[in-house]
Design a binder for these strands. Structure first.
Lengths: 235, 235
DNA sequence: GTGGTAGATCAATCGTGTATCAATTTTCGG
DNA sequence: CCGAAAATTGATACACGATTGATCTACCAC
């Protein structure tokens, strides 16, 4: 057996912040040349202090992903290829890339059904069902269960980036996640327009952890392999 | 100097500790950049004293596998190359983990068939067909095409870890890779014993790059989703 | 004695939050 | 067009807690 520590220490917050922003660059959510919000406002949105945020921005600047101009602002500088230190994974169109967007189909806080795996501390959870798009092509449907112990979400609180919503609305952030990719069949609540009823789909299960023991989120994603792939780049 | 001791007792605990942790790096259980728990907590978990653990950490630091930062923590630092032997292998048993092994079915150097995507500089490539196992459970079949411009491989040169073979036999190492996970049907050369004829399988396409422009390897892997998943962890 | 292990103490550094002022750019009124 | 005001980042300082660095003592086995 192995001796790997059970609860590896979290990386410093400023490193996580940098990675968070770099991922946003990699996924296209932050475009080249785009100006970031003022540091103070950004720090408030990200629930951190200006000093910590500035440390993260410094890291990005050293990686050449950000241009910082005193008196003006912080500007994204997109280089070729992924910039993150850590593995990058997401759904991409077969032709590559695509700008992500999500339509929320349903938001409800429910008692956790029995077919859900164990996670979180509460017996209830918020269920979010979404249809996901890349460049207006529907590529996946997904169902996210957020443990009610972390707070409750309503439909109008959601943004495209759920992790950002968690950070801004509920004040915690995801420090660790695990994806397991397999094969599955579309759920019965799949919108008609999504098509491919009954056809085998790519199926992703994801657990997410915050800065405490025990997973706080569990999600299932069904993607159409004829339109998108699960892509992972390793550096 | 003198010869090895005739009956070496158990190695000092701190050496064992270091080797244990190094193995965790090799198997991908400890990833690059990961932060270890505080020394005191880690020592308690490992049932040893802080001083002994620190000796082990010192050994790892001298081997370049660990970066120790006063006031911050201990961070895993992979040396050059793709890191651990199995770090890039991301199929796991449904129950998690598993020790990887591969049976080579066939090795041939051929002219690249037309259905292969563009990669490499040569018009020929070495085709390796393997059956993959985790803990003696057959989980996947794969076909690897290595551009002939990188050198030629024969069956007896192969080890379980292809990337290690590339480094040791051909003198280059893979710096970057991209996986695309989708759905596919098993190829016609799948061994009878693998089963699941006709059933849909997980399908992974991988491009690999060395320290030069242009992909040097292309591979296809078909995995049985009833036995293994494609796993990705984010810290 | 020598080396491995355990435990304790103090010093040095880092991570984070808060605050203040300087330097630069941008905006806008006149 | 000019200049003042506002906005924004740059730099520094301080406080506090967390974490590692270094050192010391004690015990034990060979």
């Amino acid at each position: 057996m192995s001796s790997a520590p059970e609860n590896p220490g979290p990386l410093p917050k400023y490193v996580q912040l940098a990675e968070l922003l770099i991922r946003d660059i990699d996924t296209g959510r932050l475009m080249d040349g785009e100006r970031l919000p003022p540091e103070r406002r950004m720090a408030a949105e990200l629930r951190t202090s200006v000093g910590t945020l500035r440390k993260a921005l410094r890291v990005m600047e050293q990686k050449g992903l950000l241009r910082r101009v005193q008196g003006s602002g912080n500007y994204i500088q997109r280089k070729g290829g992924p910039g993150g230190t850590y593995a990058m994974f997401r759904l991409e169109l077969l032709s590559g890339g695509g700008l992500p967007r999500a339509d929320v189909l349903d938001v409800k806080t429910l008692v956790k059904p029995a077919d859900l795996p164990e996670f979180g501390t509460s017996d209830r959870a918020t269920r979010i069902r979404r249809e996901r798009f890349l460049n207006d092509t529907a590529i996946a449907v997904e169902e996210i269960w957020l443990d009610a112990g972390m707070g409750e979400l309503s439909r109008d609180m959601l943004s495209d980036s759920l992790y950002q919503t968690y950070l801004q609305r509920l004040g915690f952030w995801v420090t660790r996640a695990e994806d397991r990719v397999s094969i599955g069949a579309l759920p019965d609540w799949t919108p008609e327009r999504f098509g491919r009823k009954g056809a085998p789909c790519g199926y992703i299960e994801r657990y997410s952890w915050a800065d405490r023991p025990g997973a706080i989120e569990f999600s299932r994603t069904w993607f159409d392999p004829a339109r998108a792939n699960y892509v992972q780049r390793l550096k």
